[in-house]
């Protein structure tokens, strides 16, 4: 016992250092995968409010750009309205091809929000949103802007939430090449915030340069067909039958400000149904 106390006294500085260091490293390595609380992030009330104040000042610098972007988006949505289209198939008055409102149910809802704090030069970049659980945001929901995919909700508090952006190591959004339907996963290798990569594309089909890459919508986080970017180049990986595809992102993550959080109304239904699939005995 005396020896033990002497040991503690001798190495007390090192032990205190190791204790604090252990805490910091535990927080660092577990929070990025399993966020248990929001106290040490910008989703907390204090940090969120400070970021909100800063955003109140800095958001005006990009005002004309964001206004223009919103106007373009409005124009595109307006052109989608059926009232602005002329039917080529059937003359007016024939019921069989008139699309009725009752034939559709809402599957995705969009919650508007603004990014109040972001980083884009670190290895894993998280954005802070000014909406939280009060507005209906939940962990795991997808986030898009008018140009493309932004990320997935990582951590939620009452009034703020943190997005795991596309500029993180393991974002793994399921995406596909628009024309061929070739599936893959979105990755980011660090360094360049304009370029990501697509993993798991088999090389038995050639990939056209500048073909569009969109979300696949398999897991129900994003609807199918949300733009991600374009194929910039594809190089063969030595020893594996896959392509290494470089993506030029559609969204410029440095300046993204206004986003929509996607709420999938039928997500629970899909998950419950998928849970009834019996496990594969070969995997066990």
């Amino acid at each position: 016992m005396r020896n033990f106390l002497a040991f503690i006294r001798r190495f007390r500085v090192l032990l205190f250092f190791a204790l604090l260091q252990g805490f910091a490293l535990t927080v660092y390595f577990t929070f990025s995968n399993y966020p248990r609380s929001q106290y040490l992030t910008t989703a907390s009330d204090v940090s969120g409010t400070i970021m909100d104040w800063r955003n109140d000042i800095t958001k005006h610098f990009a005002l004309s750009g964001s206004n223009k972007q919103l106007q373009y988006e409005n124009r595109w949505l307006r052109e989608q309205l059926l009232a602005n289209k002329l039917s080529l198939l059937a003359p007016v008055g024939i019921d069989s091809v008139v699309i009725k409102k009752e034939d559709f149910v809402q599957r995705f809802e969009y919650i508007p929000g603004g990014i109040i704090s972001s980083s884009f030069n670190r290895r894993n970049n998280y954005f802070t949103l000014n909406i939280g659980s009060k507005q209906g945001v939940k962990r795991g929901m997808g986030v898009i802007s008018s140009k493309g995919v932004v990320g997935v909700i990582h951590n939620v508090s009452e009034h703020f939430s943190v997005i795991k952006s596309c500029l993180t190591k393991d974002i793994n959004v399921d995406i596909m090449i628009n024309n061929s339907g070739e599936p893959g996963f979105l990755k980011w290798n660090g360094g360049d915030p304009r370029r990501g990569s697509m993993a798991g594309v088999s090389n038995d089909r050639s990939i056209k340069k500048w073909s569009k890459i969109v979300t696949r919508g398999k897991s129900g986080i994003f609807p199918r067909g949300i733009p991600v970017g374009m194929v910039e180049k594809s190089t063969p990986v030595e020893g594996y039958p896959i392509w290494d595809v470089t993506i030029l992102f559609a969204e410029n993550y440095r300046t993204v400000q206004y986003v929509y959080v996607i709420k999938n109304i039928m997500k629970t239904e899909q998950e419950l149904l998928e849970a009834t699939i019996p496990p594969d005995p070969a995997e066990e």
Binding site: A24, Y28, V162
Partner: peptide, 12 residues
């Protein structure tokens, strides 16, 4: 860390 979403990186 709390203000820049780095989760203990700066503290360490």
């Amino acid at each position: 860390d709390a203000l820049s979403n780095t989760y203990g990186l700066h503290a360490s």
